[in-house]
Design a protein around this nucleic acid. Sequence first.
DNA 1: TATGATGCCTAACGATTCTAGGCATCAATG
DNA 2: CATTGATGCCTAGAATCGTTAGGCATCATA
Lengths: 110, 110
Amino acid sequence: MAKNKADLLQGTLDMLILKALSLGELHGYGVIQRIRQLSDEMLNVEQGSLYPALYRIEQKGWVSSRWDVHETGRDAKFYKLTRAGRKQLETEEASWDRLVLAIAKVRQAA
Amino acid sequence: MAKNKADLLQGTLDMLILKALSLGELHGYGVIQRIRQLSDEMLNVEQGSLYPALYRIEQKGWVSSRWDVHETGRDAKFYKLTRAGRKQLETEEASWDRLVLAIAKVRQAA
DNA sequence: TATGATGCCTAACGATTCTAGGCATCAATG
DNA sequence: CATTGATGCCTAGAATCGTTAGGCATCATA
């Protein structure tokens, strides 16, 4: 990946996707763009990571999808957060906060 | 893993081990104990994660090891951070900070 | 004597991200 | 008109790395 772009850690991608979709329905490629934009270009999700992840997440019932015509006139697959997905997002955010806190504690050590 | 214990994310273990060793030489099992203690029992590294990780890390030259007698009277393998390991720790901490920041940005989004 | 903590290790598995490829459309550029 | 880069979907294979589950030994404690 390009310089200055943080590699994703395994386990963070689902949270990012759910967060992106929590701001409103999006098509797959749009999820990549929104995450990149919101993170000030620091996070770049690869297509080869995104599409399998969206499939996984849909299987788990956290998002639903439908085909529609994008404003550009092209067909695209739109994803929407389900109620279960919103709950999952909260869970993952809480886990993330705990991990960040725990690691901060270790790093505070003299 | 037990409740209230944050699961480690892939990629964080090396940093934690290096950090633990940056506070002074330790034997393998002691690394687990120190991480658990510093994190207020929030992080629990499994032995099956630790020993392979220590091997990896030593191969990369970030730690050196020697057998010695532990204060308990038992033989133990002691690990010590090398100069390269200290540099690696700084690199990993900086990466971690960037990732935490980037994810915070995404989560700040309205 | 039995159990749990300490101390080392390995093998197999599972989960997840990345690289690299394929295919199509569209706008901009030469 | 041809080419290139961005947009849009997808898959296969490789690589990484933490966990589970096992093995073995010592020691303190019950």
